[in-house]
Design a binder for these strands. Sequence first.
DNA 1: TAGCCTCGAGTTCA
DNA 2: CTCGAGGCTA
Length: 680
Amino acid sequence: MQLSLLDVSNPEDTARIRVDELRRQLEHHNRLYYLLDAPAISDAEYDALFRELQRLEAQSPGLVSSDSPTRRVGGAALDKFSSVTHRLPMLSLENATNVDEIREFDLRIKKNLGLSQEESVSYVCEPKMDGLAVELVYVDGTLTVASTRGDGVSGEDVTENIRTIRSLPLRLSGDRIPRLLEVRGEVFLSLEAFRKINSEKEEDGVEPFVNPRNAAAGSLRQLDPRITARRPLSIYCYAPGVAEGADFRSQQDFFELLAGWGLPVNPLVRPAIGIEEAVTFYEEMQQQRELLPYEIDGTVIKVDSFAIQRELGAKSRSPRWAVACKFPPRQAVTVVEDILHSVGRTGVITPVALLRPVEISGVTVSRATLHNWDEIVLKDIRIGDTVVVERAGDVIPAVVRVLTEKRSGTEQPSLPPEQCPQCGSAVVRIADEVAVRCMGLACPPQFRESIMHFASRNAMDIEGLGEKFIEQLLSLGLVSSVADLYSLTRDDLMKFERMGDKLAANLLAAIENSKQRDLGRFIFALGIRHVGERTAKSLAQAFGSLENLVTAPFDELVSIRDIGATVAQSIRTFFDNQGNIAVIRRMRESGVSPAVEQKKVGGRFTGKSFVFTGALSRFTRDEVRILVENEGGNAVGSVSKKTDYVVAGEEAGSKLAKARELGVTVLTEEEFMELLGQME
DNA sequence: TAGCCTCGAGTTCA
DNA sequence: CTCGAGGCTA
């Protein structure tokens, strides 16, 4: 603050000085109260300062600022949240569910680092808060954006709601504040706050929240920040995102700097030298769990040194240097009243236990999948059994074990059906496969599921075509293949229950719209066995058009990365079926023209496929793949007649032999480099 | 041939 | 979220 520029005789400047002073004081008292739990003034005194600030800001709009404590009570409501892309994706953590798995994590770390078993790794342990992950962005020390984790890549902008968290500084204090600081943290509700909110809800005659995490999530996703402001959310920060102007050397270092800047860090965080200290922390936390003022669902162990974290790196969805140690899930005891057989899209028949409804951590559970008959035999689950049930990952119900001592002798084992429970066709259990399959070609539930799949969001994304409509389409006999969807008329739709002009028009428009989906989605939508979203996309990329794919010989299919004999055969079988071809042809005639993705055109390797074999000295396999793909080529896994080049490194083996046998051009790594260079 | 790593498929409840 | 299974690599 440069006082020399201010003129005290100017009322605007006098107000500014007072406003700054009030903000400083209020944030100071906030910190004492929420962070240090040591208030220095009474609530009434705090309120008086707060109201004075509100009044001054109201009088001089020029003094309003986004980091003012008055912003914590919430501004105007939003229509919807906008989306924020995380500069670094927010990965999830790998789980350990018991101490053995924690020790395995340590073994993996040592193996990756080339350490001996006797050496100890320095870890940092934290309680795992049961809340929601968010990312906060501080620019020059001021909180500018806060977003939810979302799918890890992008989340929702909840800045206004995050501002209402009193323990969180809107402006960092202390020294050496970084130009840019992204911090990840967990937003949660204390048990006390949770109970308070729920008793208010009950007084109002509304359904209470089932647990603090849901309550925190509901509060954070309030479009009206004034409501959030009345929910006393808390936050603990635990990891950095992108930081500029700060150099964190280790997790501990990071925590210390955060605390210095006034950011809340869980005081229970503790270093551990060697995994056994981390195991002790886990066990201690499990014992203390019920005494804590908030819910935790485990602990987190991280490698302390950031240099070593970088060395260990990450797998596709989680870092290798951290593990979430989950506490055993909460369990309940109930009775298996029946075992049903449900038929999925691919004909797999899955046993499902119908349970006497029982509450587990606030949710009533009445069904649980038993996965397959191996599982039933292994756990010896029978109809009438008393069983222990838990919610795996606190979501999906699972039968853990049978309380055999409760058996009366009247329990009935459940056997795999010999006929499909829905269509009566024969059931087959393929050797070496766990699944039991209905082989009926016209099995109704299979067909229903395959249409649902076709219309689903990641496939053709036909909005409004859900379970209800599909049921009706089928029972009215309007659709006997997905191609029929494209010849539905308004009159057809008007036969439906609860169908008006508007709805019919929307549905027809959605179907019309789906004609333009890209090829990857279309291939995925076909529901070819072993071809999911990912594989569909790489097929689309590799072949560029539906026609190319339909006619692709087996050899060409297996030459694509990640496609082996099984998947290739499955694809061939699908397209060799004339019925499938007819359906596809009819769709094309109705105007379904899956758009070809932008394939890199003009790349030097366009249409060329490469196989790399043996050890390359300059690149990793992934790097070389990217090089080739950037030039529009394909780096594939195995040699076929369609392969254009085989690049052989040191100790190349069977692929090189095969290349010679098929007469495919073989390049050394140097020759490949020349090819790259020459073509540039 | 074993042991990663990824992908596919099925599933619960509000 | 979890399990099973396919593909790749050492």
